[in-house]
């Protein structure tokens, strides 16, 4: 394999790591609550802004020590968790009690995303901000491809979280999630605390999305709109891979990232999204996803 191909594969692994965390986050909510939650895009952006605020508060002790930086990142994840919990508790739970459809929840999530994105814009402005408190060390060469230590850390963290999420969905939570998604009233009768399961899945999803946001924020710049594109990629991966459960979603995210990198290298970065969405539309038309596959029809987790 020549150096260019190695770099494409490694770049795809890197972008795919962010994408698969977002896709798993969307999958977790879809599997449990039965809708495509677009507020994942706002949680993705809120977490790195939480890190930014923490670093800003600690900026009196410049240069910032690694310990403070890592503590800020942990705080950012906690901010994401809280955001996920609050959105579920105060926004989606009241609508679910009215027994609204997944379509209405999708519209509500869309509106909440719009609100939060613009709220971040009002608070922090539209200019790009940085949360990278450390100076970037020299890239290292692995199998002919160049990677920075941050890139390596991103891939490892994403792999660990993805394994954790798959383990959780295959483990004890799986049955509860399936019961709640299938028939909340029967789940309640069976002694499952429905709202607790939903809140747990929303918080786990927020943690995955928030971590992805922080990892991307460390590598690039922050902007209020930074969550939109990863979530579109995540939705694309979810639509393609959901039939085969969490593992299918992960593979679809990595496959799409590979396709995007290849398209970017061949035709230019401007065509990456076009190719992804064309593939998704073709896949949906071929498989008829969405009608055949539903979280409430006992699909794989």
């Amino acid at each position: 394999m020549n150096a260019a191909w190695s770099q494409i594969v490694v770049n795809a692994l890197l972008t795919g790591s962010i994408s698969l965390l977002v896709a798993l986050s969307l999958h977790l909510i879809r599997a449990c609550n039965g809708f495509f939650d677009l507020t994942v895009a706002s949680v993705f952006a809120v977490a790195p802004y939480g890190v930014f605020v923490c670093l800003h508060l600690a900026s009196g002790s410049y240069p910032i020590q690694s310990g403070i930086g890592i503590a800020a990142c942990v705080t950012g994840v906690l901010v994401a968790l809280s955001c996920g919990f609050l959105l579920n508790w105060f926004l989606f739970a009241p609508f679910r009690r009215k027994a609204v459809s997944g379509g209405v929840l999708l519209v509500i999530g869309w509106a909440a995303y719009m609100f939060l994105e613009n709220f971040l814009g009002v608070l922090f402005g539209q200019d790009s901000l940085s949360i990278r408190w450390f100076s970037e060390p020299q890239p290292i060469k692995i199998l002919g491809a160049y990677l920075t230590p941050l890139n390596v850390a991103t891939i490892i963290i994403a792999a660990v979280l993805a394994l954790g999420a798959v383990g959780m969905l295959r483990g004890g939570l799986s049955l509860k999630v399936r019961c709640v998604a299938d028939n909340p009233e029967l789940a309640l009768l069976r002694g499952i605390h429905v709202e607790r399961v939903r809140a747990t899945s929303a918080m786990c999803a927020a943690m995955l999305a928030g971590t992805a946001g922080i990892l991307q924020g460390l590598d690039t710049q922050l902007s209020p709109r930074m969550g939109f594109e990863p979530v579109l990629n995540g939705i694309a991966a979810l639509l393609i891979g959901q039939e085969w459960g969490a593992v299918g979603v992960i593979l679809a995210a990595l496959g799409l990232a590979q396709l995007q990198q290849f398209v970017g290298w061949t035709w230019g970065n401007d065509w990456q999204s076009v190719c992804t969405f064309i593939l998704v539309v073709m896949f949906l038309l071929w498989r008829g996803s969405g009608r055949a596959i539903s979280a409430t029809s006992g699909g794989k987790l």
Binding site: L106, F277, V281, R291
Partner: peptide, 28 residues
């Protein structure tokens, strides 16, 4: 014709994808 193949919820996402494709084409 697409709406026949996908659920109502998935149609929102397909149309969103179409909108993104359209914007990218107009820009590119």
């Amino acid at each position: 014709l697409i709406s026949i193949r996908v659920s109502d919820e998935a149609l929102v996402l397909v149309t969103l994808a179409f909108q993104m494709i359209w914007s990218d084409l107009a820009n590119n």
